[in-house]
Simulated scan of single mutants.
Amino acid sequence: MRPTLRQLEYIVAVADTGQVGLAAEQLNVSQPSLSSQLAEVEADLGVTLFQRGRKGAKVTPVGEEVVRRARQILHEIQDLRASAQGGGIFHGRLRLGVLPSIGPYLLPGVVRRLHKEHPHFRLIVREESTRDLDEGLRSGRLDMIISTPEDHPGAQKTHLFTERLWAAMAQDHPLADLPATLSLADLAGQTFLTLGAGHRLSHVVAGMAAGAGGRVSDEYEGTSLDAIRLMAAMGAGIAILPNIYAATEAQRGTDVSLHFLSDDAAAREIVLVQPQLPEPRPGSEILADILRSEAQKILAQGRKP
């Protein structure tokens, strides 16, 4: 039956590396052998999968769909083997995508626990924007992602936790002396600072700004939570920070005044997302439980004052 699983591995390797020679090296086969196998697949399918040139091998439009399906088939085979061994995802490798507003603050504790409880489990983490996470999940580049649910229609989602949002402002900001808990009405007319448009958080903050009668800064678009916190500390506006971040990073320093936001709109849901299959990947609920547990430890530090 063609293409064979080995040929599918060749296709994915070339797509990932962009070079036939490098793919052959990674797979421990000769370059002529790999090239011959690719040509055989293209002949069998009647399509061109890669445009080869001096700069490497570029996936063609029809090749992108073949690569996507090849990834899915290889993942299914990995899941089948893991399920037969009784260990689910914990007897293999998981490529996990995560929002940069969560990953650096939640995952260190999660990774330590996974290494302790599942020493054979290999976790590969990629921090990307909401848009890129969705693309990675759809293309098969990522196995699961930790994200917000709104931007991943058709995928399977497992609730992890709901994260409250905080307002951070300069220590000498006129609102800094207000109580530790604020409402959006208290932020009327203020300039809000947030991440770029590719992040779901930016849409949440835009809705909050509209509800408060404020505006999202068009002079500065942050690339990280640290960046928008620093801009708030310098008086450029009010940074809206997720609770996980506020509890692990922002509260360590004294460069901003932190205020809990009491409004229902000042929150976001975080979920574990995986492709829609008849059943979740074996072991995914165990991973979800570990993520929830570690998140609750952090969130307990940053509860409402």
Rank of each mutant, 00 (worst) to 15 (best):
A209E: 05
V205A: 02
Q301V: 13
A170F: 01
R2W: 04
R54T: 06
T158L: 12
A233P: 02
A176T: 09
M234N: 07
E279A: 15
V41K: 14
T4Y: 13
H159M: 05
Q296V: 11
A233N: 00
L165M: 05
Q274F: 15
R126I: 10
V20L: 15
D143F: 11
G136E: 04
L277K: 09
K157P: 09
V14K: 10
R138M: 10
Q31A: 09
S129M: 08
I270S: 10
L187I: 01
I77A: 08
G56V: 00
Y245W: 14
G87K: 02
D263T: 02
L45H: 05
A43M: 14
Y245D: 13
G92N: 10
A180Q: 06
R229H: 00
V98C: 10
L291F: 03
T17L: 04
Q19W: 07
A57M: 13
D263N: 05
D255L: 09
A239N: 04
E25Q: 14
A300Q: 09
L142E: 05
L230P: 14
L94M: 14
R52Q: 04
D134R: 11
L299N: 11
I290E: 08
T148F: 01
S129L: 07
A43V: 06
G46H: 06
A206M: 07
A266V: 03
V66R: 03
D132R: 07
